[in-house]
Design a protein around this nucleic acid. Structure first.
Ligand code: FES
Ligand code: FES
Lengths: 144, 144
DNA sequence: CTAATAATGGATAAATTTATCCATTATTTA
DNA sequence: TAAATAATGGATAAATTTATCCATTATTAG
């Protein structure tokens, strides 16, 4: 469904959000440990999220990654997915034709459209912060 | 969503189904031309579908790929996807944890489950033959 | 039986994605 | 100001996916 990079990105964001709700900054290592991901690769992904202003990053001692109030209120799953995987998931054709196009539809266009719209709606209506709250409550898990 | 191989596989199947409904066998080249895919790569995919008994293939002159009555009645999108991409799409975790597991759910488990179930239902309720009929009518397209 | 045809299978190659390494930069504390 | 810390950026490397090439096998028609 999503690329590995995107999966890591979502998991990392949820962890950072959780810790930010507890007023804690986290280091790259914290993140990699929490989501069980390769640190260096995760670093690249966090850089991308940071450049897209979805998370903050600070250098030096006391540095680390965090999300501020505004980010916590605004960053949705869709924001993350878009920043990492781009818009392919929204307007890509399910059978790989370039661009889904209703006026020259592929054989599964009608069926796919429904699913894709559901997915889109879901991603757009889910705040990372909300997921972080459940994580903090111990209801969900970032690794296994 | 699906791998390129799976996209080619679905498009190829629909084309073969369409031609089989018209009682025509098609060669590898016919398929690759019809779906605008690299022939040699497509060949590998068709071999896989053939070994899974989803399509027939015959060597020699008058050979080619085809689907018989039974295959046309039985092969669904889900059959193709399963043969090529495996079951990952059905029981894989949306965030990449190994196996979706409701008793130790990832943060998006509930949301994802809904989407995945929709997708599954859609794939399982769509016969390749049905898609082939619309293609034959000129209502849908395999390339663009 | 021969020649032509078309799929098959194995070996590679190219491209993309995922992952690692390390020197550099910015920041903080002592 | 020096030392320690943590992210950054660039260069590679490994792994996976996608794609190509070619010799072989099976089949058909002449
Ligand atoms: S054209 Fe293929 S999904 Fe719309
Ligand atoms: S555990 Fe992640 S989708 Fe079910």
């Amino acid at each position: 469904m999503f690329s590995k990079a995107c999966e890591y990105g979502i998991r990392a964001s949820i962890f950072i959000a959780e810790q930010s709700l507890l007023d804690c900054k986290v280091s790259l290592k914290d993140v990699a440990d929490a989501i069980e991901s390769p640190a260096a690769y995760t670093s690249k992904i966090l850089q991308k999220l940071s450049k897209s202003k979805l998370i903050n990053s600070d250098k030096g001692p006391t540095g680390g990654f965090s999300m501020d109030k505004t980010q916590l209120e605004q960053v949705k799953l869709s924001t993350i997915v878009y920043a990492i995987d781009g818009e392919a998931i929204y307007n890509g054709c399910g059978l790989g034709l370039k661009n889904c196009n209703a006026s020259k539809p592929c054989p599964v266009h009608d069926q796919f459209k429904v699913i894709r719209e559901e997915l889109k709606k879901m991603l757009e209506s889910t705040l990372v912060k909300t997921l972080a709250v459940d994580l903090e409550k111990g209801l969900t898990f970032l690794k296994r």
